[in-house]
Amino acid sequence: MENSQSLKGKQELKRSFPSKIRHGTKEKSPMEGVKLAAIAISLNVRLRSSDMPICMQEHALRCSRQLLDSAPKPRPNLTHLARAIKKEFDSAYGPAWHCVIGTSFGSFVTHSAGGFVYFSIDSLSILLFKTEVELVTEEKEGQRL
């Protein structure tokens, strides 16, 4: 009886918290999600949607907050902010990151698994995602570059 109750508790916990990162099989503990939530609150960030490992989400939130805080106060240049976040993620996690920042925009994007986060800081919304890149090494038969 005791084993069935502990099994029931574990199943309930699994329903409450996602058990796997989408792009891999690495288990993530409920405490990691709590830590990320605490970080988001401390940075005044609202996480909207994500398909990204928690460590990368934390990097995106901290990097964005730091860049926004160091930007000119009355009106930060959103193009410069987006470029800086994109370059940070290109250098840290490989090429083909894209960043959109604004107060009002719509989007529908296709992204690499484990490479998408959408959040807001103050009145700005930030969309950061990665796409796959295929290097073209030689001309394919019947196709021109």
Rank of each mutant, 00 (worst) to 15 (best):
Y118A: 07
Q11P: 00
G94I: 05
M56D: 08
K73N: 03
A37Q: 11
A82G: 05
I39L: 15
R83N: 03
K140I: 06
C99Y: 09
T137M: 10
V133S: 15
Y93E: 15
N44H: 14
S125N: 14
L67S: 06
K10M: 05
E27D: 09
F17I: 14
E32M: 15
R22A: 13
K86T: 03
P18S: 11
Q11G: 02
T103Q: 11
M31F: 11
H111T: 01
M56E: 11
S104D: 13
S19T: 13
I126R: 11
I41H: 13
T137C: 12
F116T: 02
L61P: 08
R46F: 03
R15L: 12
E12Q: 15
L124S: 07
S120E: 14
I121A: 12
V117S: 03
E141F: 03
V109C: 09
R144D: 11
L127H: 00
Q5G: 06
L127I: 06
D69P: 03
R48D: 04
T25G: 02
N3I: 02
G33S: 08
K20L: 10
F105H: 10
K26D: 07
E141S: 03
A71Y: 02
A92E: 02
C63A: 14
K140Y: 06
K86V: 05
T25M: 02
L67F: 06
H111V: 08
T103N: 12
I101N: 05
K20I: 09
G94M: 05
D90E: 13
G106I: 07
T131Y: 07
I101T: 05
Q57N: 05
I85K: 07
E138T: 11
V136L: 14
K14M: 09
S6N: 10
P53S: 10
S6M: 11
P76F: 00
P72L: 01
V133G: 08
K8C: 13
D69C: 12
E134K: 14
S104W: 03
S123R: 12
V34D: 06
Y118W: 12
W97Q: 14
